[in-house]
Simulated assay, not measured.
Amino acid sequence: MNVVFMGTPDFAVPSLLALLEEAYNVVAVVTQPDRPKGRKRELTPPPVKAEATKRGIPVLQPEKLRDPGALDAIRAFEPDLIVTAAYGQILPKSLLALPRHGCINVHGSLLPKYRGGAPIQHAIMNGERATGVTIMYMAAGLDTGDMISRVEVPITDDDTAGTMFEKLSAAGADLLRATLPDLLQGRIEAVPQNEAEATYAPNISREDEKIDWSRTSRELFNQIRGLNPMPGAFTLWNGEVFKVWASRKPEGASSRSGAPGTVLQMTDDGLEVKTGDGSLWLTQVQPAGKKAMSVAEWKRGTTIPPGTVLGV
Score class of each variant (00 low, 15 high):
188 I>R: 12
190 A>W: 04
171 A>N: 05
225 R>M: 00
205 S>Y: 08
251 E>Q: 02
196 A>H: 03
174 D>R: 13
220 L>G: 01
192 P>Y: 06
172 G>H: 07
207 E>R: 14
244 V>I: 15
259 A>F: 01
223 Q>F: 01
158 D>E: 15
212 D>P: 04
234 F>P: 03
161 A>R: 11
184 L>A: 05
205 S>G: 11
225 R>W: 07
240 E>T: 10
198 A>C: 09
197 E>T: 13
209 E>F: 02
179 T>K: 06
241 V>N: 01
189 E>P: 00
253 A>Y: 02
236 L>E: 10
247 S>E: 02
192 P>A: 01
199 T>V: 11
210 K>P: 00
166 E>V: 13
229 P>C: 04
184 L>I: 03
209 E>C: 15
186 G>T: 08
160 T>Y: 06
249 K>A: 05
178 A>S: 13
178 A>G: 14
164 M>N: 03
240 E>M: 10
176 L>A: 04
256 R>S: 07
251 E>N: 02
160 T>K: 13
253 A>F: 03
188 I>C: 09
232 G>F: 11
228 N>K: 04
168 L>H: 03
257 S>G: 09
195 E>F: 05
241 V>P: 00
255 S>L: 13
170 A>D: 12
259 A>C: 00
219 E>Q: 15
162 G>A: 07
200 Y>N: 10
228 N>F: 09
172 G>W: 03
190 A>I: 04
229 P>S: 10
192 P>C: 09
211 I>G: 07
256 R>T: 11
180 L>P: 12
162 G>K: 03
192 P>T: 06
182 D>N: 13
189 E>C: 06
213 W>L: 06
213 W>C: 08
159 D>P: 10
161 A>D: 13
193 Q>Y: 12
194 N>K: 12
183 L>A: 12
206 R>S: 14
